[in-house]
Nucleic acid binder design. Structure first.
Lengths: 160, 160
DNA sequence: CTATTTGCAAATAATTTGCAGTGCG
DNA sequence: CGCACTGCAAATTATTTGCAAATAG
């Protein structure tokens, strides 16, 4: 929860509009589930959203979280983030952005960059089909993992 | 199988070297599983690799495929590709490359671009930790999906 | 030879679905 | 009031693990 309250509020309004537009009901559960994703800078997975929402809505079920997350995805209100190994993560940041990704712990953070937004798509990429957008993934070791610099998360047998 | 044979051969040699170096055995199964990934331009998932290898090695088991794929990953010989929705996919292209990704069917293809390789990482991204590399994802509709231009793969109830 | 690796089958984890009750519009 | 939505539990799918037999080096 580091996303400013007014930003969250704005995103929630978009949700309300979108729901009305396609005729799906804006239930308490949906609202809270969306709030959970919209208010988080880590891109949570279904399980994590579930744990968060449960604190305010102790009766939600995990499957409602799944159903809602995919519904929000279909409405175009959250993006999915291909994970590194684990399950899908969700991202409710509607602004154009890119991702920083820790190769060790999987931490994922958004950042913005006008230069990267303006990237020219090379012809080699256009061959495959139309281009709707581009996104840059920056890989690295996050500050946290750099500090705790022991073995990698997945081990290879030590060189004989 | 569109990767040229000599390229595959070269990748296999790297595998042999790496195995010797860390003292893991280069078994028939491992060789074939690697060949399957190294020889494919689609980034196959475990199940797909399994089906492919099974044709030449009818007795391999799916779990050996999983174990081997992760082993190859640990050895740094294959990358994993965060999927769109489905499971993890593997990529044995050792050259610096970027990805084209169809938003509809999930088709994923490599392409190379010296400009993109040279991308300047914006300071906003450096805040989170060290930078090891960057990769660009180009999203679009592949030629195939553009042709069959019916509804999106995941439907939203039609606007009332 | 001997430690590593494999295949099998069973365990676990993640996600989806069927259904009956509930409540919003 | 009816249809969309929810929670539950069971089904399905994906992935991992334990162990005895097979095999690379």
């Amino acid at each position: 929860m580091v996303v400013p309250a007014d930003e969250v509020q704005q995103r929630v309004e978009k949700l309300a509009t979108a729901c009305r537009q396609v005729g799906v009901k804006l239930t308490h559960q949906r609202l809270e589930i969306f709030r959970e994703v919209a208010g988080s800078v880590d891109h949570p997975d279904a399980e994590t959203v579930f744990r968060g929402v449960r604190q305010r809505l102790p009766t939600v079920s995990l499957d409602t979280v799944y159903r809602t997350l995919w519904l929000l995805h279909d409405l175009g209100l959250v993006q999915t983030l291909g994970p590194r190994r684990e399950s899908v993560r969700f991202d409710a940041n509607p602004r154009r952005h890119h991702h920083y990704l820790c190769v060790r712990c999987g931490l994922t953070r958004d950042f913005e960059s006008a230069e990267l937004d303006a990237l020219a798509v090379p012809p080699a990429a256009c061959e495959f089909g139309s281009v709707l957008g581009t996104q840059v993934e920056v890989h690295g070791l996050c500050a946290c993992c750099a500090a705790a610099a022991d073995g990698p998360p997945r081990e290879v047998p030590p060189p004989a």
